[in-house]
Design a binder for these strands. Structure first.
Length: 506
RNA sequence: GGCCCGUUCGUCUAAGGGCUAGGACACCACCCUUUCACGGUGGUGAUACGGGUUCGAAUCCCGUACGGGCUACCA
């Protein structure tokens, strides 16, 4: 029987969730949904020194915003909990003990000072970072070098110690990666990684294997930065006796910034977000901008994220989440890193803005305008406004400057664009427009335009000479959608009011 | 330094031995529009380098260069 697809995203709650992390979430999610599997969120909070309050909640908020909610997690529940590694301490301890008993791991009592001393002494030009490996482990203080009674005594006395994996001296390990194919490693260059730390917490290496096994994870998708520790993980699957349950691997390429690896700094430096949502560091109070607050639609966010390193082989670029679920394939993910292009990300958002129904955008736009102090919105009026201006909005946040004039009569006018060529003829023209529009029964853009141009022609005025002043009367400046569409939406009363008011100001 | 991964227009990418290397973003020009956008048409622009293998290489192999990751009791 085919194994049920179960994948997980396992962040450590240490701060903002950047593009790379979100893309890992996305690919996991798409893969799970495509195979009718489960998407699990596991919190890897084994490093207590890096604990950041609020970071866990923030991760949930980001996934929710991006429509990538997990099926199982510390808050969504599930049969394989707890889903927070800090709550699974005893489980890891048990397996670490098993590894020691089976001879695959050992106790190490070296103090941080002793480790530093070893590294210092062994450091040479050709080996700038000596490792705790098969070449040095017999010179250190551990259960391999100490007499059995001594080890027993130290353990009984509760002397601080760790458990390290005993990596075989010369073995070739082959990793089958869904993106990269077969990758070979020689174990003689991998070090005896710490599995269980002195504080009793596991390191990532132990925890990820134990949890993936216990949570029945079928596919392990993670960032490329994990590729070099993969041999340790493969060894652990073997040593724990679970080799036949080892998940399939895929190491996702990195997302790069303008100069190498994408960092939080790139964002502030080049003016684009790198986090999914705003993140405020509780320590420093520093705020890092998120895509959500910048004005991105989740549809667009996941769309451009998906395309950063993946395509379905056709020329289609705009995909709904459902289409992505259908078409995604890990084998088509690029193996090379992708440089993030903010301009293209904005293009995706613009496309989604144009494609979205006014109703889809209503709530977001309403909140946005409300924040800007516009509170006289009628729902159906707002919807019409959105329909009229959404094509010219790249980001949600553009809605304000594209539409505020629908809600407020202009107070100021771009006089420089009008007064130099303003004269009595034009004044009379608009007086006639007012008279005509007051009589006008069919208040729609088309008739308004026909009337306007007729009056112009009767008065021997070129429509072009009065179109711009008309626009400025209605919106205050040289911007906005078509003037007659604006007039239609504004309604007879408000339009006439604006013309009269402007006439007095010109 | 060692190990591993990668390298097609400025950017994201297509083409997995065979047509003038295709598309998208960005940029430029023109058209539309007497606001600005949208839209339309066209253009500039790439197989890192050097060797092989082959009738034929972006594609397979080797080397070089460049970029990246890892090299913690962080993930």
């Amino acid at each position: 029987m085919e194994k049920r697809v179960r994948v997980r995203f396992a962040p450590s709650p240490t701060g903002g969730l950047h593009l790379g992390g979100m893309r890992t979430v996305l690919y996991n999610y798409l893969f799970a949904k495509q195979h009718n599997g489960d998407f699990i969120l596991r919190i890897e909070d084994t490093d207590q020194s890096r604990y950041v309050p609020g970071a866990e909640q923030y991760i949930f908020d980001c996934l929710k915003w991006a429509w990538l909610e997990p099926d199982e997690s510390p808050v969504h529940g599930g049969y394989y909990g707890p889903y927070r590694q800090s709550e699974r301490k005893d489980i890891y301890r048990k397996y670490a003990g098993q590894l020691v008993n089976d001879g695959y791991a050992y106790y190490a009592f070296d103090t941080p000072e002793e480790l530093e001393k070893m590294r210092h002494e062994l450091r040479t030009e050709s080996n700038p970072s000596p490792q705790y490996d098969h070449k040095v482990r017999m010179k250190m203080r551990n259960s391999l070098t100490l007499p059995a009674e001594e080890t027993k005594k130290l353990l009984a006395e509760n002397v601080r110690h760790v458990i390290r994996i005993k990596v075989p001296e010369h073995e070739t390990l082959i990793l089958k990666d869904m993106i990269r194919g077969e990758v070979q490693f020689d174990t003689s260059v991998v070090d005896d990684k710490v599995l269980l730390k002195a504080d009793g917490m596991p390191t990532y290496h132990l925890a990820v294997i134990v949890d993936d096994y216990l949570m029945k994870i079928s596919h392990s998708f993670r960032g490329e930065e994990w590729l070099s520790s993969a041999p340790v993980h493969i060894l652990l699957w073997k040593y724990l006796g679970w080799e036949k349950d080892m998940p399939q691997w895929a190491h996702l390429p990195l997302i790069l910034g303008p100069n190498g690896k994408l960092s939080k700094r790139d964002g502030s430096k080049y003016g684009f977000p790198v986090f999914a949502m705003n993140w405020t560091d509780p320590q420093s109070g520093e705020l890092t901008e998120g895509f959500k607050e910048k004005g991105f639609l989740p549809e667009a966010f996941i769309n451009f994220l998906a395309m950063l390193g993946w395509n379905d082989g056709t020329e289609q670029e705009i995909f709904t989440k459902e289409e992505l679920i259908q078409r995604f394939s890990m084998e088509r993910v690029h193996s090379g890193g992708a440089k993030f292009d903010y301009e293209k990300a904005k293009w995706f958002n613009h496309e989604w803005m144009k494609r979205s129904e006014a109703g889809r955008l209503e709530q977001e736009v309403k909140n946005l305008l409300l924040e800007k102090g516009i509170d006289n919105m009628d729902d159906s009026f707002l919807k019409k406004v959105i329909g009229l201006v959404k094509d010219r909005c790249v980001l949600l946040t553009d809605f304000y400057e594209q539409s505020y004039f629908f809600f407020h009569t202009p107070e100021q006018y771009d006089l420089a664009a009008v007064t130099p060529r303003w004269n009595d003829e034009k004044k009379l023209f608009f007086a006639e427009v007012i008279r005509n529009y007051e009589l006008n029964i069919d208040w729609n853009a088309e008739d308004l335009e026909i009337n306007f141009k007729e009056i112009a022609s009767v008065n021997k005025i070129k429509p072009g000479d009065v179109l711009l002043p008309f626009r400025i009367m209605l919106v205050g400046g040289k911007f906005g959608p078509g003037v007659f569409a604006i007039a239609e939406l504004l309604g007879k009363e408000e339009t006439l009011h604006r013309i009269k008011k402007a006439l007095a100001a010109f």
